[in-house]
C-alpha cells in the first residue's frame, strides 16, 4: 500500500451518543487551526457532516454507486466550514440490503478515486455508525485504512458496552495491521459520578480518556442552527473544549491495543457500579466515599 497521506482517524460509539457532533466539531477545530481535513460519514443515515455544510444536500457515495454512472469526486463531496471536505458513504433503505458491505464498497471507491492523493489532507476523520455489528462496520479499522480509532461514550452502560465491543474489534484486527485505540472521548459528562464510571472503565480496559465533553446547551443550540459549536459559538467555553480535544487527537501518539472485558466481567463491573450509584443517589454515601 502506498504511504498514507494524512492521519486517518476512525470515531466510533453507540448510536445517538454524539459521534457526529463530536467528530464535526473536531474537524471544524482542526480546520480552524489551519489543517486540511476530510470528514467521511460512514452511516446509512448520511447525516454526519450536516453541521459542517449547513444541512445542504450532498449525494452519498452509495447513491452514486447505485445509479451505476461514472463517479467523480466532485459529485460526492462538498467543502464545508473551514474547507473541511465532507463526504457521506450513505447506504441502503433501512431494513433492506447490507449496510456493512455498503461501507466497505464506499471506502474502496474513495480509494479508487484517489481522494487522498487529490485532496492531500492532514487529517481524515471517519464517523462510523453505532456498534461494530458485523465485519462491514469494522472496515475503517481494518486493512490499514485508519491507524487510530477513538470511541465516544457517555457513562451509560450501553454506551460503554458498545465501546467494549469496539475494543474487541481493535483487539482482533490490530495484530494484523488494523488501527489501535487513541482513547475514549467522554461525552455528555454531567456533574457527579459520571466521570468516575468512565475513568474506571478505561482503567479496567488499559485505555485512556482523550478528553471530557460536558453536556452543554451550546451544542444543542448550534445543532439547531445547523452549525458546529466552533462556527456558531466560537468564543464559548464549549468551543474551547472541542479545540483542546482536537489538539489532543492531532498530537496524541500514545496508541494502545485495549483489553476488552469479557461478557460476565463487564456485567459484574456494571452491577458493582449499579450498587454504588444507588448508594450515592439515595444519600447513603457521598460521591468521594463511593468511589
Amino acid at each position: 500500500m502506498a504511504e498514507k497521506i494524512g492521519k486517518h482517524i476512525a470515531i466510533y460509539g453507540k448510536g445517538g451518543i454524539g459521534k457526529s457532533t463530536t467528530t464535526s466539531n473536531i474537524s471544524a477545530a482542526l480546520a480552524e487551526a489551519g489543517y486540511r481535513v476530510i470528514q467521511i460519514g460512514c452511516d446509512p443515515k448520511s447525516d454526519s457532516t450536516n453541521t459542517l455544510r449547513g444541512n445542504n444536500y450532498l449525494p452519498t457515495v452509495l447513491d452514486s454507486l447505485r445509479e451505476g454512472n461514472k463517479i467523480h469526486l466532485d459529485d460526492i463531496s462538498v467543502k464545508g466550514f473551514g474547507g473541511v471536505l465532507c463526504i457521506e458513504s450513505g447506504g441502503p433503505v433501512p431494513g433492506v440490503g447490507c449496510a456493512g458491505r455498503g461501507i466497505n464498497a464506499a471506502v474502496n471507491l474513495l480509494q479508487e478515486l484517489n481522494l487522498f492523493e487529490e485532496f492531500k489532507p492532514d487529517y481524515v476523520l471517519y464517523d462510523v455508525l453505532g456498534d461494530v455489528v458485523c465485519g462491514g462496520f469494522a472496515v475503517p479499522i481494518r486493512d490499514g485504512i485508519t491507524d487510530r480509532a477513538y470511541v465516544v461514550s457517555s457513562s451509560d452502560f450501553m454506551a460503554l458496552y458498545a465501546a467494549n465491543n469496539l475494543f474487541k474489534a481493535i483487539n482482533k484486527y490490530a495484530p494484523t495491521g488494523g488501527a489501535k485505540l487513541g482513547g475514549v472521548i467522554a461525552n455528555s459528562m454531567k456533574p457527579g459520578y459520571h466521570r468516575e464510571i468512565v475513568e474506571d472503565f478505561v482503567a479496567k480496559t488499559g485505555t485512556s480518556i482523550a478528553g471530557y465533553v460536558n453536556r452543554s446547551i451550546d451544542v444543542q443550540q448550534s445543532e439547531l442552527y445547523g452549525k458546529t459549536v466552533i462556527e456558531a459559538k466560537p468564543n464559548s467555553a464549549q468551543a474551547d473544549i472541542y479545540r483542546n480535544l482536537a489538539k489532543h487527537i492531532a498530537e496524541n501518539e500514545n496508541l494502545v491495543v485495549p483489553n476488552p472485558l469479557g461478557s460476565s466481567e463487564l456485567r459484574d463491573w456494571a452491577r458493582n457500579w449499579g450498587d454504588r450509584i444507588y448508594d450515592i443517589e439515595s444519600g447513603v454515601v457521598g460521591v468521594a466515599e463511593a468511589i
Partner: peptide, 10 residues
C-alpha cells in the same frame, strides 16, 4: 452484483 448486496436484491 454488489449493488444488489448493498441495496438488497428483491
Amino acid at each position: 452484483q454488489e449493488r444488489h448486496v448493498i441495496f438488497g436484491g428483491a
